[in-house]
Design a protein around this nucleic acid. Structure first.
Lengths: 133, 133
DNA sequence: CAGTTAGTTCGACTGTTGTCGTACAAGTAA
DNA sequence: TTACTTGTACGACAACAGTCGAACTAACTG
């Protein structure tokens, strides 16, 4: 594993809180993560994101997203694969994710090109980091 | 006026930031304010909300909503009339407000009955606080 | 005029957030 | 085994958020 053998905990679908989700998505770094995650429906490692923060900060943001129920993390060797909990989010808050992602894409520009960097980085990644959905 | 003659500033439609809006709506008190504001399309005074906080905290929350561009405030005698900036929000972030309000209404229950209290309080209000849309 | 009403402003306080660096753990590759 | 890679854990820190109470301001009401 990446670190301790502590289990990765995710909230149940029924436990998702709107406030927590909105707060999780109100940070630009986390919104960028979710946007990249939503673009390609694949499992991405934490390191595959071109984020302007250090590793530890990155870990923190992924934990916030996970605790809010926005993403799911799965251990795979030394890496941690991330996926959007799209089904759960759509079930609890219909249309919320798509609406926010669309708003993030069209407005508040400047982070729209993030997907390109993701794709570029993904090309340099190892074997098991990305797999087709 | 309620206090100083300082002008009430609102951001332009183009200046609305998604992160700020999401952050503004991630607080339960503010979400309640917006939900009540959205229910009846009228101008409500700050005091017409049955909020579980003091006046000064209330002022703070209204300022956050105003700075984020979620609401518009207009001075009217000693009171301040609040309206949702629905048109601006819909223009910048299509569907976002309705989606969040719907999510707040259906899920995360417990604040759904807020509208009833608003109606009750509105009935006790003075003359110019509520007017038909 | 004095009193009431509606809301702001100003500290103050506590808790949370975003950030970092260093140290560490676990798997993978040489 | 020895590195290297990937990520976590742990302080630490400054900044911010939400809360309150007290003082204040301005309009309205008697």
């Amino acid at each position: 594993m990446a670190s301790t053998n502590e289990q990765i905990v995710h909230p149940d679908r029924e436990q998702l809180e709107l406030g927590a989700v909105l707060h999780a998505l109100s940070d630009p770094v986390r919104l960028q993560i979710v946007a990249e995650l939503a673009r390609g429906e694949v499992e991405c490692t934490c390191g595959s994101f071109a984020l302007p923060v250090t590793k530890s900060t990155c870990t923190h943001h992924f934990k916030v997203l996970r605790d809010a129920g926005v993403i799911k993390q799965r251990q795979q060797g030394t890496t941690r694969l991330n996926t959007l909990r799209r089904a759960d989010l759509d079930a609890r808050f219909p249309g919320l994710l798509d609406t926010i992602l669309h708003a993030a894409r069209t407005s508040a520009g400047g982070h729209v090109e993030a997907a390109a960097s993701l794709t570029a980085v993904a090309g340099t990644m190892g074997t098991s980091s990305v797999r087709a959905a």
